[in-house]
């Protein structure tokens, strides 16, 4: 499979619903052979972007292509792209097998393929049961099976971990990584929590309020983490001034602790030694990736056209 074959390109896509700008001038690229996380808080525009990529929603401006062409022009859409969107599409009275056979016919694959994908997601034992009796996790698996019918080179999955138990999440992680790393497929997975997909994804595309805020590998994102120093001392107040005179930012962390940024552990230890302050603990600590994610997505301005301004806490009021 060539390099261009499985690439998703979103180019300057804007999508408005009435006055709501769901997606604004969004551009990014998703490469084959790796799992890409599509991250953003609730309402960021992830589902909308995916619907545009899949040709379900017409962008207000801009364009999206899969394997070099707009979705509607794919010669074999079912063999190129498999998708799961957030609201599942099952008739409750239909059995899992009947559901899959309906779409197998439309995809031009055999009924045997329907049984294969059922086995792939571990639903063979309940194949004949109506979907209305299925748990959320079973529904997610059936949705995934539907997406796999045409053995597609590209998978676009909207919050596929929703409703999966820890075991299911581990299974999904292995499944998606296999599809990307072993088969070389393109896998785009959305989530509103980074930690949920942190162990699954290789790259991330982060959006907030319809804008791109970060695009890159997970390692690059790790590099964005702020590194701080946590100091434990029985007399924290005696260490504040010496550290501030070095240009570090110091905040209290509990009764006997300080949180220092802008100085290494060695610098802090030296300053304490010089000031004659007794230390009980000294360690460097990187903020979590989730913290980076939250910071990235919260200080993006709200989209123009929002009716009410959101109540933002004034800076510095955090307890």
């Amino acid at each position: 499979m060539g390099d261009q074959a499985g690439r998703i390109v979103v180019a300057n896509v804007t999508k408005t619903f009435g006055t709501v700008r769901a997606v604004q001038d969004l551009s990014f690229t998703v490469e084959p052979g790796r799992v890409t996380g599509f991250l953003g808080p609730n309402g960021a525009g992830k589902t909308t972007t995916m619907r545009v990529v899949l040709g379900l929603a017409e962008p207000t401006s801009g364009s999206a292509t899969v394997a070099g062409v707009p979705y509607a022009q794919l010669p074999h859409p079912g063999r190129t792209v498999g998708a799961v969107l957030e609201s599942t599409s099952f008739h409750p009275a239909r059995s899992a097998r009947d559901h899959l056979r309906i779409y197998a016919a439309a995809a031009g694959v055999t009924d045997r393929r329907a049984d294969e994908v059922l086995a792939m997601v571990g639903l063979t034992p309940v194949a004949g049961q109506p979907v209305k009796g299925f748990s959320l996790g079973m529904r997610q698996r059936l949705a995934l099976a539907t997406a796999m019918l045409g053995d597609p080179a590209v998978l676009i999955l909207d919050e596929p971990a929703n409703g999966l138990d820890p075991e299911g999440i581990v299974w999904l992680r292995g499944f998606l990584r296999h599809l990307a790393h072993t088969d070389g497929r393109t896998v785009l997975v959305s989530s509103h929590v980074l930690s949920e997909v942190e162990q699954t994804v290789d790259s991330v595309v982060i959006i907030a309020h319809g804008h791109l805020v970060h695009e890159g590998t997970l390692d690059e994102l790790r590099g964005e983490r702020a590194v701080g120093v946590v100091v434990q001392t029985p007399t924290p107040e005696t260490l504040v001034e010496p550290l501030r005179s070095l240009g570090a930012t110091v905040t209290r962390a509990g009764e006997h602790g300080l949180q220092v940024t802008g100085a290494s552990a060695a610098t802090v230890g030296h300053a304490a030694w010089e000031a004659g302050v007794e230390l009980h603990g000294l360690r460097e600590e990187a903020s979590s990736l989730e913290q980076v994610f939250i910071e990235m997505t919260e200080d993006v301005p709200a989209p123009v056209g929002d009716a009410a301004p959101s109540a933002q806490p004034a800076p510095g009021t955090t307890a």
Binding site: G55, L74, P77, V81, T88, S89, H91, A106
Partner: peptide, 14 residues
Amino acid sequence: RHFTSRPTFLLEPR
């Protein structure tokens, strides 16, 4: 009601 035409439109965008 059940979004069952969505997969159909994905498989046949025409």
